[in-house]
Computed example of a mutant assay.
Amino acid sequence: MTAATGTERNTQRGLGPAAVELRGVVREYGTKQARVRALDAVSLQFPAGSWTAVMGPSGSGKSTLLHCAAGLERVDAGQVLLGGADITASSDAELTKLRRDQIGFVFQTFNLIGSLTAEQNVALPLRLGSSRVSRQELRRVLASVGMEDRMRHRPRELSGGQQQRVAIARAMVTRPAVLFADEPTGALDSKSARTVLDLLGEMVATAGQSIVMVTHDPVAAACADSVVFLSDGRIVDHAQRPTAREVADRLTRLEG
């Protein structure tokens, strides 16, 4: 499927051409005497129906960018737009609802609850949002990540790759407009990582899902439609469908 088709599908859901947009975003940490600017007037669009990887040296601002774009952190200046709607001045309650209803999160550490089954973990966002939990929908989501036959297993009974697939199903059960992934393959072996990356790519290709992924892995980044490179809190490079070698070379130059 072409990226245009993904954009069309997201437009029908009310997103328009950009799933997320940052306009002149500044984020600082620390006291006046030791102020650190993690994001320095960053302006960037993440197109709807596409997969964007964010890379850069340690301390470049990758995670801060993701957290600000997802409404997990407030910006000090600039604007963050989700589907064209400015969320910069949203209240804490509004941001909580936004993250619950329109945004999905996948992290390196899976963050599954050990006492719950895979099915119960996936149902958790719906229960927290007081939404009706359909067993059929839970089966559908787990089947979409190849985990329908493991729905009654607890995290300790699953491999790392299987736990990450459950985490992806949990993120997708609310049908989010945007999926934010922070190092989703960082704790996986190469085979499990490949499975997770193929799954993310399929979501974009078949359902027009919008994905923003922070990663340090050139192989993972090369699976995305585009790669954005940060250094010292600024966008310094951009590549469309680069190879893993091209990503590694650009990252090496930034780290040098």
Rank of each mutant, 00 (worst) to 15 (best):
18 A>K: 11
88 T>F: 13
122 V>R: 00
237 D>G: 08
194 R>D: 10
55 M>K: 04
106 V>K: 01
76 D>V: 13
91 S>I: 14
184 P>L: 01
188 L>Q: 01
149 D>Y: 08
59 G>M: 07
76 D>S: 13
21 E>R: 15
78 G>P: 12
84 G>K: 10
43 S>A: 08
228 V>D: 04
174 T>C: 12
146 G>M: 03
49 G>M: 06
244 A>Y: 06
9 R>S: 13
240 Q>W: 06
243 T>R: 04
52 T>S: 03
65 L>M: 15
155 P>A: 01
236 V>N: 09
63 S>Q: 07
253 R>C: 07
9 R>I: 15
234 R>L: 12
154 R>G: 06
59 G>S: 11
84 G>L: 12
252 T>D: 03
97 K>A: 14
207 A>W: 02
236 V>G: 13
4 A>R: 15
66 L>K: 02
62 K>V: 06
7 T>L: 12
94 E>C: 05
50 S>W: 01
126 L>D: 12
30 G>L: 03
192 S>E: 01
81 L>Y: 07
243 T>N: 09
181 A>Q: 03
35 R>C: 07
85 A>P: 09
162 Q>M: 12
164 Q>Y: 05
17 P>T: 09
17 P>R: 15
69 A>G: 10
47 P>M: 12
118 A>Y: 00
244 A>D: 11
24 G>I: 10
248 A>N: 07
27 R>S: 05
106 V>Y: 04
16 G>I: 08
143 A>T: 14
226 S>H: 12
231 S>V: 06
137 E>Q: 14
254 L>M: 06
59 G>F: 01
180 F>V: 06
110 F>V: 13
206 T>L: 04
155 P>S: 05
159 S>H: 09
223 C>S: 06
205 A>I: 08
236 V>P: 08
227 V>M: 11
206 T>N: 13
23 R>M: 13
63 S>W: 09
203 M>F: 15
163 Q>M: 15
217 D>L: 11
57 P>Q: 02
162 Q>C: 04
62 K>Q: 04
199 L>K: 06
82 L>I: 14
97 K>N: 13
10 N>A: 13
214 V>M: 02
239 A>E: 09
144 S>Q: 12
235 I>F: 05
190 S>V: 14
81 L>R: 08
176 P>I: 02
234 R>H: 12
227 V>P: 02
194 R>Y: 00
181 A>R: 03
53 A>N: 11
240 Q>I: 13
226 S>M: 11
79 Q>W: 08
222 A>Q: 02
75 V>G: 02
143 A>V: 06
162 Q>T: 03
